[in-house]
Simulated assay, not measured.
Amino acid sequence: MQEMPQLQQLLDQLGDYTPLIINGAKALVVLILGWMAAGILSRFVRRRVNAHPEIDQTLGSFAASIVRWVILLMVLVAVLGLFGIQATSLVAMLGAATLAIGLALQGTLSDLAAGFMLILFRPFKLGQFVDIGGTSGTVVDLNLFFTELSTPDNVQIIVPNGQAWGAIIRNFSHHDTRRVDLVFGIDYGDDADAAMRIIRDLAAADSRVLADPEPWVRVTNLGDSSVDLTARLWCQASDFWELKFHMTKAVKEAFDAAGISIPYPHSVEIQKAG
């Protein structure tokens, strides 16, 4: 009989925490549903925006990011409301702690502001190959806080928007055409005019080389062991690397067939009679 009052006391204590447990369960459900809704709606916005060919895909990625974070903020306000913290009280608390929050989140706020600047001025777009402060890669995503790059060897790189906006940006895909610069060294005893003619003929035979601007081949340097010939060829940006690799191999083979040597650094020893 003595156990009954103890059991009743335990039930009374649990009853005191019942509203908290119920609100906690509700908050968990709201968080899960809100997180799922944010993901679904952000993907929907991305697809709808990217469905229009006249709209840059970078805008679709950025708009999806905004939708996602707005929904998550609404979910946070709803969860706090379940525990009796109203939105007005939350705003008052944030207002009172503005300085502390600003100092703690100054990097995040800077990334947020830089994200809007990047989407406003658009120094790069999704799918373009860029160099941001010495880091190169293809732009995969641009959202509120960071820019995602993918390197040619498929390594993911995350660049905070604040650093991206404050760095020197080199966009290799911005223009439709690019110039391929090639340097070939020949022996001092070889015919430079014949070597330059070979390079011009190979360039003329390659359909990827543009006629305007005209291919440019000149003697540009007299080195320690070679006469350096520089070729400047213009092509579509998408053909840059394939043309560079192909011309390097083709010129080497053509020089071999014509008896033009590509020298390597060497030293000449001169002995004088005593």
Rank of each mutant, 00 (worst) to 15 (best):
P5W: 00
Q6K: 14
P19F: 01
K26C: 02
L28N: 06
L33W: 02
A38Q: 00
S42I: 01
F44N: 08
R47L: 04
R48L: 09
V49Q: 06
A51L: 00
E54Y: 12
E54H: 05
I55S: 03
I55P: 10
A63C: 10
I71C: 10
M74I: 13
L76V: 15
V77C: 08
I85Y: 02
A87E: 09
V91Q: 00
A92E: 02
A96E: 15
L99W: 05
A100H: 04
I101M: 05
A104L: 09
L105G: 09
A113P: 03
L120S: 05
Q128F: 07
D131R: 08
G137F: 08
T138I: 07
N143T: 15
T147D: 03
P152E: 02
N161T: 07
W165A: 13
W165M: 15
R170V: 14
N171F: 09
I186R: 08
R197W: 03
A211I: 13
S225I: 11
S225H: 10
S225A: 13
V227P: 01
D228M: 05
W234T: 09
W241K: 13
E242P: 06
K249H: 10
A250N: 10
V251C: 14
E253N: 02
A254F: 04
A257N: 02
G259F: 11
I262Q: 15
I262H: 06
H266F: 12
V268D: 04
E269L: 05
I270E: 09
Q271E: 13
Q271M: 11
K272L: 13
